[in-house]
Simulated assay, not measured.
Amino acid sequence: MTLLQDTISPLLDVTPEERAERLGAAGAAWNDRIAADPRNAQLTYTVTGRGVGSVGTEIRAGKHRFLVDEPAGLAGDDAAPSPVEYALGALVSCQVVVFRLYAQALGLTIDDIEITAEGDLDVRKLFGIDESGRAGFHDVRVRVDVTGPNTVEEYEKLRAVVEEHCPVLDLFANSVPVSGSLA
C-alpha cells in the first residue's frame, strides 16, 4: 500500500494473550453499547477520493491517506495498487479480522493466518467493447491458510462462521443498493 503520510506506522505484532485480551474487550464493549441502545450498532463509513496523476486517486479515510492507481497498460502511473486490488485487499484483511474475532469467541487458536484472494475480471465492459458481461469480478477465489493446535474440522467450522459474518465478503457475495449523484 502506498501511504501519503510522511512516516509509515507499522503494526506491531502482539502476543496471543494480548490479542485475546483486545478482542475480548472490544466484543464486550460493543455488546454493552448495543445493549444500551440498539442504534449504536449502526455505523456509517465515509471515504473521499481526489483525482491525481493520470488516473490515480488520493483516498482519505478518517486520519489515513493512501494512493490508488492503475498499471501503465490501463493508463495509470503504476504508483500504487489498482482499485480492484484494493477491493481484494479489503476482502483479505476483513477475513483476517473476522477469523481472529471468531476464533477467540469459539475458543480456537490461530498461530498464523495467511489469506490469498484471486479475482477474474473481463475488461471488455470497462472499455465498452461488450456490454453483455459484468464490469467487475466474475469469479473470486479465497484461500485461507491457518496454523494452530486445533483440528482441521474445527477450522472448517470456523471458516463457515467467518463466511456468514464477514462484512466485505457480504459485499462481494450479495447485491448492495448503491445510489449516485453528480454534485
Score class of each variant (00 low, 15 high):
Ile115Pro: 14
Val84Gln: 09
Thr109Phe: 12
Ala87Ile: 14
Asp69Gln: 03
Glu70Gly: 04
Asp120Trp: 10
Ala79Lys: 01
Gln104Trp: 06
Leu67Cys: 08
Pro71His: 08
Val123Lys: 13
Asp122Ala: 03
Tyr86Ser: 02
Phe66Ser: 06
Ser82Ile: 13
Ile113Phe: 05
Ile115Gly: 11
Glu118Met: 13
Asp120Lys: 08
Gly89Ser: 12
Ala103Trp: 05
Asp120Ala: 04
Ile113Tyr: 04
Leu126Ile: 12
Phe127Thr: 12
Leu108Pro: 12
Ile113Thr: 04
Leu74Ser: 14
Arg65Leu: 06
Leu67Arg: 06
Pro71Arg: 10
Leu106Tyr: 09
Pro71Ser: 10
Leu91Ala: 11
Arg65Ser: 06
Ala90Pro: 07
Gly107Ser: 07
Val96Ala: 15
Leu101Asp: 08
Val123Gly: 14
Glu70Ile: 04
Ala87Gly: 14
Leu101Val: 08
Val92Phe: 09
Pro71Trp: 05
Arg124Gly: 05
Lys125Val: 15
Cys94Asn: 00
Ala103Asn: 06
Ala87Ser: 15
Cys94Phe: 01
Gln104Glu: 05
Pro71Lys: 10
Gln95Asn: 13
Gly119Asn: 07
Glu85Met: 14
Gln104Thr: 00
Gly119Ala: 07
Val123Ser: 14
Pro81Trp: 11
Ser82Arg: 10
Gly89Trp: 10
Glu85Cys: 14
Arg124Lys: 11
